[in-house]
Write a protein that binds this DNA or RNA. Sequence first.
DNA 1: GCTCTTGAACTTCCATACAAGTGCATACTA
DNA 2: TAGTATGCACTTGTATGGAAGTTCAAGAGC
Lengths: 230, 230
Amino acid sequence: MTIVLPIQSLPRLQESAAARVERELRAGIIDLTIRPGERLSESEIAERFQVSRQPVREAFIALMRQGLLDVQPQRGTVVVKLSVRRMLDARFIREAIEVAIVRRACERFDAHYRDRAASLIAAQETAARAGDHAGFQRLDSLFHIALAEGADCMEAWTAVEMQKAHMDRVCALTLHSPGSMDPLVAQHQAILNAIEDGDAERAVSAMSHHLSEILRGVAGLDLTFAELFE
Amino acid sequence: MTIVLPIQSLPRLQESAAARVERELRAGIIDLTIRPGERLSESEIAERFQVSRQPVREAFIALMRQGLLDVQPQRGTVVVKLSVRRMLDARFIREAIEVAIVRRACERFDAHYRDRAASLIAAQETAARAGDHAGFQRLDSLFHIALAEGADCMEAWTAVEMQKAHMDRVCALTLHSPGSMDPLVAQHQAILNAIEDGDAERAVSAMSHHLSEILRGVAGLDLTFAELFE
DNA sequence: GCTCTTGAACTTCCATACAAGTGCATACTA
DNA sequence: TAGTATGCACTTGTATGGAAGTTCAAGAGC
């Protein structure tokens, strides 16, 4: 007797070419490997990824909707420049949603994700001491996701993710000094503590403060890196 | 001497085929002309709109990102069914953002848009008396947009729009009784009054209450129209 | 009657060719 | 020289054919 796995029910074993191009381009745009203002072209990217123009085009359109590319018909496609205004707008929207998330988390928060959030904070301390910024950033994201999951707000998180990209892109410019991560860990702990206490107002103000502090050190970057800003 | 207008600086005179297909399909999906659970296919829609499959495909992908279509590779595309959960998630996100908008509006609100919001409320009263539900819905949307514009939060509104679709889709099921629009007008007025007074807490609770009342009458629809819900 | 195979008819995904528009350099004209 | 055509090289947008995968029903084999 052979056991037949329901393969067809899985999403798909291999992501599509369009999805791969979009994922890699997105990562490059956010970490500024692909520079703001840079001109892209469907055919050039297609050649680089060894695919046809069509999946590249679909990736371009998707990234345009996310506000990362500017597709100008018959003219060309450019990576949108950084923008203080756009960053502040992103922060405004993100704060609105994440504040609502922690407020709900104070009412009901899955115990499993409370433990997960706590262990993520511990991992962040380790990463901070090791000076592992890339790892820290990944753990930071996972912490916020854990809050959303614990509060049963994953749909809200997908809305946050789009905005987060515009904050991350500007933050990628900052030089990470050795002790820059420690305050963020403490802020995460403060948020989790407030949630565990069920203190909504404290949780909200802790999250609000945290999202402000993330952007500490970006002031003046639009002058230092003027060519990257619009 | 001939005057040459800078035509090339305009966005584009005629929207692309893909944009047109997306716009029309989206409208149909939201007003339930295209029924939840209905099966679509690129070639069928392409024939209906007299375009090739490619722009239809792009429209499908865009609508999938908005959570309105479910594109299953090599299997088919279906209009996602209505979902109470999804509607509540949309309301949660929308409330989070719109509450933040009115809160900001209490701090700074462009006078021009205050007048515009007031005139929109007046127009809503007229539409309500005439029993013009389609017109009322359009005016309702314009009112919320005016708030966002007045508070200088248009980026936030684009985030709201995506969620709004999931609420509108369920609301399209409700039978509009003659007096159902009057309370909504009053709620709009309450929101605007609070903003004019600069009373943030009152504005927030007015908006919150308004967004709750919009969904009045949808309770039990998932049982009455079980085949449209997942 | 039941199980398995097989093939036809669909689907979405990708590659390729062509259409249409933009910008720029070059050459031509007054 | 200044101004104006004009053609070329590029861009994105659309059409179409085929590749890869899924579903389903008909039919062979037991």
